[in-house]
Structures are given as structure tokens and as C-alpha cells.
């Protein structure tokens, strides 16, 4: 993918352009959120708990009387760091395992895929419980836990995609030419399995945000008073009746962001897939 291809791809694709813009916006909030927050996101106002929208608190307040808008803005950063960090871990290790599991020596293939199976059989909740038991909850343990959770899925996708690629004619050609393993992997396999991996990555970013919210729901998320979207949604579930907007704002942002990531991911997949590009 060249840097020029994204702007080109946007032409005639308003949904894609809009999604990319939205992602860029969310990302910049992630970077500058603290500066944009209109109020102190940690200021507890015990007389103003669970308020609806007002002139002073545009989106209302939470169960501590803290400004929801400010918390939503600063909550982007940990959400994104966790989601992207976890996806990066999962993508790098998962792809490595997947390719090795499909392309390595038979013994390597066997051992790696069985290890992936073993990792896969650990439920995320158990990993999270264990991680929290050891290190405390927090951004770092969330990244590791969620990353590890999604490694096997990446590995599986990379594995089956590599198997498919291995059967294609050009691979025979590469092999016949005596190409080195590294060459085969980087020139032949990776470009051809990138499409499903990109789809998987977008799914994973979205899923990581959701998993983080689920773990927050179970009390295993970001350490308060630092907010994350997931943690806000998890807490807000308890206040559905009292302060319905509390759950709606972060859910809406979460949903729209995930939607944008997915739309962008789908389009990227089309751009990246060499076969689709030929059309």
C-alpha cells in the first residue's frame, strides 16, 4: 500500500472518507483529550450526582457528579491504547505463529498449532482474573491480557490463509526458484494473507474495546478514577433507570467508533487485496 492510495481510495467513497475522518478525530481526541476537556474530569461534586444535560454539564454528570463530557474525552486515550496495544500484540505474535504453523517444518507446525490451541482454550475471563491477581488491573495488564486473548484468533486466520496461499501456483514458482524462507514469507505469503489479517485486525480493535468494557463490568478494567469508555459503560449499566443518558453517550461513541473502524477496515481490505484490485 502506498501512501497515495488512501486518498485515492476515498474518491467516490463518502462512507469511507467519513469513517477515516472520524477515526482521525477520535485518535486526536485520544492525544489531546485532556486539553479539550471543558472541566476537571476528576472533580467530585457530591451535590450534582447523576444529573442530566445542563448548561454547565452538557452531557450531564456521573455517579460522582463528575462532568461526563470531560470524562468521555479523556476516556478515549486509555480505550485506544488498550485496543491498539492489544491488537498489535495479537497481530504480531498471532501472524508469526500462524505462518510458522502453516509454513514451518512439520514438527514446528504441530507444536505451534497445539500451543495456539492451548492458549485458545483459556477463557479471557480467567486470563484477566489471573492477571489482576498478580499485577493489579490497569492499562498494561489489560493490553497483555486482551492481546494474549486474541493471539490465537490471529494465528488461526493467518494459518488458514497461509495454507490457502501455499496451494497457489506462484508459491510453487517461488519454491522452485529456491527462494529463502524470509523471502517467501515477506514477498509471497504476507502480501497475500494481508487482506484477512486486516479484517481480523479491525475486528480485533473493535472486540478489544468491547472486551475491555466487559472486564470493566466485572471489575477488572482500568483503575479508577481514570475513565475508559468501556469502564463508563460498565458502570452506567447500574444506572440505566436513574440516568439513562449516562449509558447512552459512551455506548454511542463506542458504537460509532467501531462502525467507523469496520467500514474503514472493509475498504482497506479491498485496497490491499491484490486479487480484488485487479478487477
Amino acid at each position: 500500500m502506498t501512501s497515495a492510495s488512501i486518498p485515492r481510495a476515498m474518491r467516490g467513497q463518502p462512507a469511507f472518507a467519513f469513517s477515516v475522518a472520524l477515526i482521525a478525530m477520535v485518535a486526536s481526541i485520544g492525544v489531546f483529550g485532556g486539553l479539550l476537556a471543558p472541566q476537571d474530569p476528576f472533580l467530585i461534586q457530591s451535590q450534582l450526582v447523576n444529573q442530566g444535560s445542563s448548561a454547565s454539564h452538557w452531557l450531564g454528570t456521573d455517579e460522582f457528579g463528575r462532568d461526563l463530557l470531560s470524562r468521555l474525552l479523556i476516556g478515549v486515550q486509555p480505550t485506544l491504547i488498550v485496543a491498539i496495544g492489544a491488537t498489535a500484540i495479537a497481530a504480531v505474535f498471532g501472524t508469526m505463529f500462524g505462518i510458522a504453523g502453516a509454513h514451518g517444518r512439520p514438527v514446528t507446525q504441530f507444536i505451534i498449532m497445539r500451543c495456539v490451541d492451548i492458549m485458545l482454550s483459556f477463557p479471557p475471563i480467567l486470563l484477566a482474573l489471573l492477571a489482576v491477581g498478580f499485577w493489579q488491573s490497569g492499562v498494561l495488564s489489560l493490553i497483555v491480557v486482551i492481546g494474549v486473548v486474541y493471539i490465537p484468533q490471529f494465528a488461526r486466520v493467518a494459518h488458514s490463509a497461509t495454507l490457502q496461499v501455499s496451494r497457489m501456483e506462484f508459491m510453487e514458482a517461488e519454491r522452485a526458484m529456491g527462494a529463502s524462507t524470509a523471502r517467501v514469507i515477506f514477498n509471497a505469503i504476507l502480501p497475500n494473507i494481508l487482506a484477512p489479517l486486516v479484517v481480523q485486525a479491525t475486528l480485533t480493535v473493535a472486540a478489544a474495546i468491547l472486551l475491555e468494557s466487559g472486564l470493566s463490568f466485572l471489575g477488572l478494567g482500568i483503575v479508577p478514577p481514570q475513565p475508559s469508555w468501556g469502564q463508563m459503560i460498565g458502570t452506567a449499566r447500574g444506572y440505566l433507570a436513574q440516568n439513562p443518558m449516562y449509558v447512552i453517550w459512551p455506548s454511542l461513541l463506542l458504537g460509532v467508533t467501531i462502525l467507523a473502524i469496520n467500514v474503514a477496515g472493509d475498504r482497506l481490505r479491498d485496497i490491499l487485496d491484490p486479487r480484488l484490485r485487479q478487477e
Binding site: 462512507a15 475486528l203 473493535a206 472486540a207 468491547l210 468494557s213 466487559g214 463490568f217 468501556g230 459503560i233 460498565g234 449499566r237 440505566l240 449509558v247 455506548s251 463506542l254 458504537g255 467501531i258 462502525l259 469496520n262 467500514v263 472493509d266
Partner: peptide, 21 residues
């Protein structure tokens, strides 16, 4: 396609405990 894909995406992006509640 757009409608179905968007619906599916919305489906993915609602936390299960919110949907359940």
C-alpha cells in the same frame, strides 16, 4: 449490503451486558 453490514456492525459493537440488560 450497506444496511445489512451496518446492522451487523452495530450488533458487534453493543456490549453483551447492555444488550442483555
Amino acid at each position: 449490503d450497506t444496511i445489512l453490514t451496518s446492522l451487523a456492525t452495530v450488533g458487534i459493537s453493543v456490549p453483551v451486558y447492555i444488550a442483555g440488560t
